[in-house]
Design a protein around this nucleic acid. Structure first.
Lengths: 154, 154
DNA sequence: TACATTTGTGTCGCGAACGATATAATCTTG
DNA sequence: CAAGATTATATCGTTCGCGACACAAATGTA
């Protein structure tokens, strides 16, 4: 039986999966200082860029379903970093706003990207490589994203 | 305040995180037919390559801690795909063996890698690109992995 | 031989992810 | 305007992922 394709080393998915997990782990010490997790950080990144978005808008930007985002937002609300307000025009929609504390956290987050790149960089992988990698992954992302949308509607 | 580095689009981590999740999602329909999840599939890939490994050996190959692997192995055991046997030489070690059912599942898994590549391929991303991506990620992985090991012993 | 240390595995608790499903508000279509 | 479809959000149950911790077996050292 030709099982060469089932070798772990042949899988494209495995290094992506592992790198993703390990990078998240690399974020942890910095995010712990802010008292947040990596997915929570992603939500804040989105809100720091543009405040007052609906749950749906956030979920689309992060490619996460609302059943992942909703509980996450609850935790951010409990941390007093965001506030949720039901829209008056469309009672189904919920707008998410940064609180003062949430806005202030941005200043503390500013140095994180550079710190992380410093941590992840090496002789083997330099910033230009990361940039290249990012571009390839983004292209791929746009492809996969649309394929997933067409196969499962959620 | 120069907050350009906090833009979601500037983050290297985000596309990796998203692609990883979406690829896992792409596996789902095929793995569902086998009755297993993606992490369970990874464990089986390892065992199909070399049977009778200890929990520790599996955890090192997959870069996952034993506290993730242990419950996962329990579920695979419940599915009657593997069997755990405590070593007689070193009573601390537990060897993991495929059952007949686990061995037979390999035949069903054989076509999966090709199906997945077909699903993920497009005009924009071809097999050679995936291969290139894989190699870059693997190099990066080896770097991050060692940095993580040195910072946190587990 | 005693006692501390290390090693291998596992449990606990929490926060994601996500499929399935629920519920209410809005829109569509007859 | 009424009935069905759609949309936005949220809940539930299961599995991961992981830090903290527990515990017994093995190892090292005095």
């Amino acid at each position: 039986m030709d099982d060469s394709k089932l070798k772990l080393s042949k899988q494209v998915c495995f290094p992506i999966y592992s790198v993703s997990r390990l990078i998240t782990k690399a974020y942890r010490p910095y995010l712990e200082e802010l008292g947040i997790t990596y997915p929570q950080y992603l939500v804040l990144l989105v809100l720091w860029e543009k405040d007052n978005l609906t749950v749906n808008e956030i979920s689309k930007k992060l490619l996460l379903n609302t059943n992942t985002i909703s509980p996450l937002l609850k935790r951010l609300e409990k941390l007093d970093l965001i506030q949720r307000k039901r829209s008056s025009e469309d009672e189904r929609s919920v707008f998410v706003q940064l609180t003062d504390k949430g806005k202030q956290l941005k200043a503390q987050a500013l140095p994180i990207p550079e710190k992380l790149i410093a941590d992840l960089e090496s002789e083997k992988i330099q910033i230009e490589d990361m940039e290249k990698l990012k571009n390839m992954l983004c292209e791929w992302l746009s492809v996969i994203q649309h394929k997933c949308e067409s196969s499962t509607k959620n």
